[in-house]
């Protein structure tokens, strides 16, 4: 049986984006951990080293560190290696909010419970590395099809 799963979210920056899920269970320091030319997460303690942000829907708790990290997000976008969309699961920090706002990257907030639902559903649906999700912050929903 095929079904659509829809998870409601809160819009922080409006837009619609599609991409594979990239999940980080730990906060990200954009200023120190991200290569703005390649889009790679360069930290080794984040559980997804060698992963690339480009074209993904990044799901992570929140960013930490200097608010200058907002310019890192802007730089990722200028270099065409930014995630297509971002979802925060703990708090929407000012760095991620302002970084996405100046870069026109759709940004949403969901709580931890919904994040667990999202991850479980993708697992149930099969190949979680290949599943694409749609983040539609204007409609305040995340769609897994």
């Amino acid at each position: 049986m095929r079904f659509d799963l829809e998870i409601k979210c809160k819009k922080i920056v409006g837009g619609r984006a599609k991409g594979k899920l990239l999940l980080s269970k730990k906060p990200i320091n954009f200023l120190g951990m991200v290569n703005t030319k390649s889009g790679e997460i360069t930290s080794s303690n984040n559980g997804f080293e060698k992963q690339n942000l480009k074209g993904k829907i990044l799901v992570f708790p929140n960013s930490i560190g200097s608010s200058v990290g907002a310019y890192t997000i802007y730089s990722l976008k200028s270099n065409n290696v930014a995630p297509n969309g971002i979802i925060c699961t703990n708090i929407v920090d000012i760095t991620t909010a302002s970084g996405c706002a100046i870069s026109n990257i759709p940004l949403a907030f969901i709580d931890n419970q919904s994040c667990g639902d999202l991850v479980n559903c993708i697992k149930i649906l099969g190949n979680d590395k290949e599943s694409e999700i749609i983040l539609d912050t204007e409609e305040e929903k995340i769609i897994i099809d």
Partner: peptide, 13 residues
């Protein structure tokens, strides 16, 4: 196709 909607308990004001 069926649709399952999960709601999120956050302030959406």
């Amino acid at each position: 196709m069926d649709k399952i909607i999960l709601y999120c308990a956050i302030n959406k004001t």
